[in-house]
Every structure is written in C-alpha cells, then in structure tokens.
Design a protein around this nucleic acid. Structure first.
Length: 584
RNA sequence: GGGCUCGUGGUGUAGCUGGCCUAACAUGCCUCCCUGUCACGGAGGAGAUCGCCGGUUCGAAUCCGGUCGGGCCCGCCA
C-alpha cells in the first residue's frame, strides 16, 4: 500500500487518511491549534480542537517533530482557503496524533527566506536537504540521469562499469592513492577518468561504451569544480577516426537537454566549430561565453609604429596589442576597478580610450597620430559613448587579461542572458605546447590523442603547429566536455613520445597495458566525456557547483558533516604497512 | 603555494571615521494569554566578553600585527 501524501488530501474530501511528515510550523491559538505538516510533496494544514483528545499532544509539538496524523479531510470555508498552498482548499481534522520522533531546535533555517551561510549548511547537509530547493534539485538530478541513459541506450551505447581501484596514471591531476594491504608498499589509485579502461573496451570489441562514471582528482576546487569526486558521462565509439562523428552523435543530447529538459533557449541552431587558435584570438580563452560579442581586436600591425612606448615596446618584444570595445562609459572608480582586475591577471596596466563624436579621447591620445586614432576607432568598431580597453604584452598574457575582462564585463553589464545557452565546439587543440617556465615542449592536453596527419605530422618541422584531433564543448563559458580521436597506433604513440625525447622503454613503463593491447588489433576509436555536475549547474542556473550535489566537500576538501578526511586506527595503518609522520 | 575578501547571541544582519555598546534589529528558543491562523497575534524572558592571540590607547567589536577558519580567484585541473 502506498503512503498517503500531504498533496493527496486535496482530492480526498470526506475521507479519513493518515499522513506522516515534519511539523513545518505550529500556530497555537489557545483553543485551536494549526499544524503545517510537511512531506516531500508539500504542506497540509492540520487542525486540532481544544475538545480533542489529541490537544495536549498537539500543544507539545515543536518545529521539525516527526508526526503521524490521522483525521478527516475537510473542505475549508470559502474565506478560509489559502490560495498560496496546493492543499489550501482543505485541511485535516485530526482524530489521532502520534509523535514519531522529537527534534531539537534546528541549527539552520529550512525557510528559504533566510539563507544560512554555506559552511553551516554543509555541516548540517541533511537538514539543508529538507529545503524545497534542494529537494527539487535532487529530484531533477535523478531525472537528468534518466534522460542521459535513455539517449545513450537508444543510440546503441552500452553501459559498462570500470574499476574504482585502478592504477596511478602519470599524466594529469594528482591521484588519490589507496594502499594495498596484500602487497605492502604498493598502491591503487582512484581513476581520474576511466580513460584507459574505456580504450581497452574498444580493443575488447565493444562497439559503443558509455558510463556515468565517478572520477577522482586531488586538485584545488573552484566554484565550478568539485573537490575529490565528480561525475562524467564517459563514452567511446570504435571504428571512428574523426572527431566530427562523435560530435554529431552527441550534440543532439546536449541541445535537447537545454531546450527540453532545461527549458532554455539555444543561442544558435547549429553548434559552431571554432579552432582553438581562433578562440584564443577572438576571445582570449578556449572556453568563451558566446552569449555576447565584445571580441578581442588585434591592433598589433596597425600600431606597430605608433608613438606610444608601452605598445611599441610590447610589439618590439614579439608581443601584441589587442583591445576590446565596451558599450559603456566608465567612471574613474570603475576604470580603477577594471585596471585592478587587469593587473590581477598579470597586466602592467590598462590603457583605455573613450569615443566621442567619432574620435578617440584619452590621456594617452597625445601619443598617437590622428591616423592611428582613426584606425583604432574603425577596427574596434567603436561608437560614440563606447570605451576601448587595451592590452599589450606577450600574446598569451594579453589574451588572458582581455579574455578575463571580457567575461567580467559580460557579467557586470548583464550580457549573459540566464535563459539562453550558447554552445560551441572548440577543435584542433595544439598537440604539443611549450611550457612558459621551462621552455620545454610537452603534450598540450594528453598523450592519448591522435595528431592530425598521424605519423607524418609528427615529423613536421614546427612541432607546435601540430594539432590534435581533439575537441572540447563549451557551454556559456564553461568547459563541459572533452574528447578526442585516440592514438591507437603503437608506432605513432612511440613517435609522439619520441619527439619529447622519451624512448620506447619509458612509454612502455607508463602505458604498458594500453600499448600492449594496441599491439593486438586495436580498432580506431574516439570518444569524449561530459562533466555532468557542471552541465547540470548551467541548466539550473546555479553558479556554484556545490549547489547541485547532495554531499559536497568544502573548498579545502573537507566534509564538514562527516569530518573526513580523518585519522585512522593505528592497527589499520600497521596492517597496511604505513607509517605516518604526524608532525607538519 | 600566492592574491582579494569575510568572521558579531542558535540563524541572518547592523554597528566597525575608537567612548553615548551595559552591543542593536529580524528570526529562532523558553513562559504565559488567545478557537480560524497560514511568516498567526499579544505580553514577558533567556541567550553574544564581537573567531583566536598579542599590541596601540585613559578606553578597542571598531585601529595595528599575527594566527585560525570560510568564500572567490591565480597557480593547478591529461
């Protein structure tokens, strides 16, 4: 028999029902007590009369007591109905009242009107989850998973779970290690992603694999990045040797999630493909928010001979001058704030000009000829009342600073429509990248991707010009997916590492299992993984990823409720052959 | 590891250009009154040495230094 919920009462006038739930509030009128009973479905008003046997019991009720009430559903008089309540046309005339459990006064408020700080909420997450918003979130999240599974299954992907106790992988984020008891001195690692396993599944003859996979990374969190464990929709397809096939296969899912599941608007019908280099050039980032323009304009060529030493100095040092045009005039203090922001990103300062009557006006204008000022206005497309913000330095830094300013201004000026979602595929990531600090070349993203052009491409003169068949999906400025055509050819794998100066033995020691498998007829394969928490965050218009997870850790990786991480019994350590230096 | 920022009864805030702060307001909590409320109402009450340590000062929630904790960002995140 199913339990009767508060919400059911509205259709059960005249019947006797039993409901169970929490006391949301109690209004004691002396001779008549109203109780708002709350369960996950809503709120129902109970009434207990002074003549009732249950009156004493009702008087003793306090907020959040768990009770069971039996009574008759009664239609309220017309002027006593509460239109703000789904069950507001009825009430339960209580004949039997049982306190199932008492509750101390709550340390945090469940009432949505009073927002408790996050630290307290995480400490008492089980109470926080009683809030309507969190109840809704958890339910939506379950529906979200179902939505994903239906799509994947209907596209012939089969779900396969891969081990949680896996191996440390040398590239990438820091691992969570798990000591082995049976083999003292050795460790499992929790997988940062099922990357190697899913590729091994391809070798194992699985045509299409997917998994809602738990991933573990020991890196400092952000507002859009959880600490510790998080979820990916991980997938891989065999006999696919181009990224476009994967992108076409998966993009309807994301589009449907936006329009159907999320009831939001897509900014474009088709999802644009933007090469990495172009994204960096136009937006200063590989995860641009495309809900608004304000693109970066390169003025390096035009201003190479201008009289402003800051610009020419940067250009002569192989740097660039770029600008963004903002449709707003800023006050002195606003400019100061923006300059502060730019400096935070590593800029030396933030030159700017305002445009009046088609002319650029600025304290630095005197350093420029009329022609140069004219070119600046024309190339940035600045109109009267606009402000042009400049960055001049090495290309990477200018992109970072202006890209960050662009995003901040997008927020400040309300250009990021919360009801619109802009999607983009960023493609053609560099296969190798130069480490700014060491000057050494290393893998741009990961060594599993196939360089476009294969073995031949790796022999090309300019190693930094080699692109990987690798792609990210970007959603409103968040990276929500990363994928690639995999390097399934041992020869290409050895050579890719060889370019970096690593010999065969090194590669085998790091990726032995994968490499071995590739020697036995690995099919071409490609895939990707979507960050599920982050996508859900965007779909529900949250700007903190902890809001969409039941039990998140805080910014220092601490579970404030369970108090993990924690020390363990010394016997456990002994069994694991582990000594802990408790100093530090 | 670094930068910015916050820390005041159970909860959320105000005060923070030093003294009128013996710390205010809202909410919650306790007692009493109330038979139609729905954020019920009314009367009364308890509850904070202002994160912690130190300094400046006649005097510190307020200024300074340090420290601990939270948040955001940079680094990091194949």
């Amino acid at each position: 028999m199913t339990r009767t919920l508060t919400i059911d009462a509205k259709d059960m006038v005249g019947q006797s029902i039993t409901v169970q739930g929490w006391v949301n509030s109690r209004r004691d009128h002396g001779g008549l007590i109203f109780i708002d009973l709350r369960d996950h479905a809503g709120i129902l008003q109970l009434t207990v009369d002074a003549n009732s046997n249950e009156f004493k019991e009702a008087e003793s009720l306090r907020d959040e007591y768990v009770i069971k009430a039996t009574g008759t559903v009664t239609e309220r008089a017309e002027d006593l109905k509460n239109p703000n309540l789904a069950t507001g046309s009825v009430e339960l005339d209580v004949t039997d009242l049982v306190i199932l459990n008492k509750s101390e006064p709550l340390p945090i408020s469940i009432d949505e009107s009073q927002q408790t700080n996050e630290e307290r909420r995480l400490e008492y997450r089980y109470l926080d989850l009683r809030r309507e918003k969190m109840q809704r979130m958890l339910k939506r999240r379950a529906e979200y998973y179902t939505y994903l599974r239906i799509y994947m299954e209907s596209h012939d992907f089969i779900e396969i779970t891969t081990p949680i106790l896996a191996n440390s992988s040398p590239e990438g984020a820091r691992d969570f290690l798990v000591p082995s008891r049976v083999h003292p001195g050795t460790f499992y690692a929790l997988p940062q992603a099922p990357q190697q396993f899913k590729q091994l599944l391809m070798v194992g003859g699985i045509p299409r694999y997917y998994q809602i996979a738990t991933c573990f990374r020991d890196e400092d969190p952000r507002a859009d990045r959880l600490y510790g464990d998080f979820y990916q929709l991980d997938l891989e397809m065999s006999f696919v040797d181009d990224g476009e096939t994967v992108r076409r296969e998966m993009e309807p899912l994301i589009q449907n999630l936006v329009t159907d599941f999320g009831q939001l608007k897509l900014s474009t019908e088709d999802i644009p493909r933007i090469p990495y280099a172009e994204a960096m050039d136009r937006f200063g980032t590989d995860k641009p928010d495309l809900r608004f323009g304000m693109e970066l304009v390169d003025l390096t060529e035009e201003l190479a001979n201008c009289g402003f030493g800051v610009f020419t100095g940067a250009i002569n040092a192989d740097g660039v001058v770029k600008a963004i045009c903002v449709s707003k005039q800023f006050s002195r203090s606003e400019i100061d704030k923006l300059t502060e922001h730019a400096k935070g990103g590593g800029a030396g300062g933030m030159p700017y000009m305002t445009v009046e009557n088609g002319k650029a006006i600025s304290s630095i204008a005197k350093f420029f000829s009329e022609e140069h000022l004219q070119v600046i206005v024309e190339k940035t497309g600045a109109k009267d009342g606009d402000t042009i913000l400049f960055g001049s330095d090495q290309r990477e830094r200018v992109n970072k600073v202006l890209g960050s300013l662009r995003s901040k201004l997008g927020d400040d000026l309300g250009l990021k429509d919360p009801n619109t979602v802009a999607l983009a595929w960023i493609v053609d990531f560099p296969f190798y990248e130069k480490d700014e600090k060491t000057g050494r070349i290393d893998f741009g993203h990961n060594p599993f991707s196939m360089p476009k052009g294969g073995l031949d491409a790796l022999e090309s003169e300019d190693k930094l010009a080699i692109v990987a068949d690798q792609y990210d999906m970007v959603m409103n400025g968040y990276e929500i997916c990363s994928g690639a055509v995999r390097n399934y050819n041992p020869e290409v794998m050895y050579r890719a590492f060889g370019v970096l100066g690593y010999d065969q033995q090194y590669v085998e020691s790091r990726f032995g299992a994968l490499l071995n498998a590739f020697k036995f007829g690995a099919p071409p394969h490609a895939g990707c993984a979507f960050g599920l928490d982050r996508i859900f965050m965007v779909l529900t218009n949250e700007d903190n990823i902890r809001e969409v997870v039941a039990f998140p850790k805080n910014g220092s990786g601490v579970d404030l409720m369970m108090h993990s991480p924690s020390t363990v019994d010394s016997n456990q350590l002994t069994e694991l052959s582990i000594q802990v230096d408790t100093e530090t």
